[in-house]
Design a protein around this nucleic acid. Structure first.
Lengths: 231, 231
DNA sequence: GATTTCATCTCGCTC
DNA sequence: GAGCGAGGTGAAATC
């Protein structure tokens, strides 16, 4: 990785056109050829960038550009889309290179996947006598989070969200409509499960005969801890 | 902005839990207190980060941590959510600070708004004899991107997207349904215009009698250039 | 201030 | 490769 602090202006031409006026910025050149232009603030998102796979060509400025104070031109070209990022370098304040090696990567825990896993493990939370068919049950229009059967053997499709919004109800409705056309599954009832369900979403769901289930993440983790301590 | 290259491990606890094993990484400390952890590859997204507003506290490791090789502990705490990012520093390879000043910011051009402006200016692209009624025509459920009339005086509602997806067709369908109930407008035909229209979206649109129009952004800008040269 | 929509979204997964 | 859905989504515009 090479780190350059320099006065620069930047132009991007690709899916959109964008321009950064002259200012001092951090230019990060990663070993895969990608380039990030960061300011000293804002968010984790660079002001401008080029994603890999791409290639960097450094060229000399023409006479007019030299007069304007440009010392180097960096042209970063995307290998597939031909998007271009052109960095005009003026004064360089810092320039260093570093060997980082490959990164072992991030280990995540605690998102919707974990909620799904917990609910699948404690499927009785859906109601007495419920059994798990499978997680991520595939349909033609996408995967249903959990497919289960109730005590009487009827199909139950569960849509899981961290925050239960109206979108999630629409999503589940589409799944139910499709699944109820499948004679192997029909009739399928829906359960909309989330840590928090917004009133509008609850209204819409119940109006469509979809049951709402509020999940207590910490309590579910507690069930897991209890289980792991007992067995 | 402070740039540190160091061996480190990182733990994040907030909306999810995440861990980065020991490796050499770039730590970017911005002047607003935010911290970014970057590896030498991947995308513009850091491996881990803390967004502003947040505060950084540097503390000494305890005895056990010293034995493990930790020389410093950085605790970054979000001011509002109390999310925490803990960076355990081992060996430091580089450490430098730089004055960047505030950034004038990115100037964008070429998003949906520009497409809409261009199409409104060259409304004949919809077909011979078409005239513009207005952009952002308000309805009870939101604004229709462009309302026009065809050569025979019939209403034409245009939904514009950079990428024509199934969502856009659904949106236009809702508008058409509503507008066709208005005797001043009905009958209204729909045009789904985008730089690129996905096959599924095209299928759905044409199935509903909505015409699809692929827009060439560069060519449209060319029309503009020609016009500005001529007049 | 809350909400909706857009994004050079990115990222991961499945078919 | 295309399609779908989640994201510590973030950021901007609108209500």
């Amino acid at each position: 990785m090479r780190l350059v602090i320099a006065q620069c202006s930047v132009d991007y031409a690709g899916r959109l056109s964008a321009h950064l006026p002259l200012a001092t910025r951090l230019l990060m050149l990663k070993s895969d050829g990608s380039v990030l232009v960061h300011s000293d603030g804002g968010s984790y998102k660079p002001l401008n960038w080029m994603s890999p796979p791409c290639s960097l060509a450094i060229s000399a400025p023409d006479e007019l550009q030299v007069e304007a104070g440009i010392t180097e031109l960096w042209t970063v070209t995307h290998a597939k889309t031909a998007d271009q990022l052109i960095v005009s370098i003026y004064e360089v304040q810092h320039d260093s290179a570093h060997e980082l090696g490959i990164d072992p990567g991030l280990i995540k825990d605690g998102v919707e996947a974990h909620l799904q896993k917990l609910l699948a493990e404690h499927i009785h939370l859906l109601g007495d006598g419920h059994t798990l068919v499978r997680r991520e049950y595939m349909t033609a229009i996408g995967p249903v989070d959990i497919l289960a059967r109730d005590a009487s053997g009827g199909s139950v499709a569960v849509e899981l969200k961290r925050r239960g919004d109206i979108d999630g109800v629409e999503q589940l409705t589409r799944y139910l409509e499709l699944m109820n056309r499948d004679p192997h599954l029909a009739p399928v009832v829906g359960v909309f499960a989330a840590q928090q369900i917004k009133p509008q979403a609850r209204m819409l769901a119940e109006d469509r005969g979809i049951r709402c289930l509020v999940l207590d993440y910490d309590a579910m983790r507690g069930l897991d801890d209890t289980a792991s301590k007992l067995f």
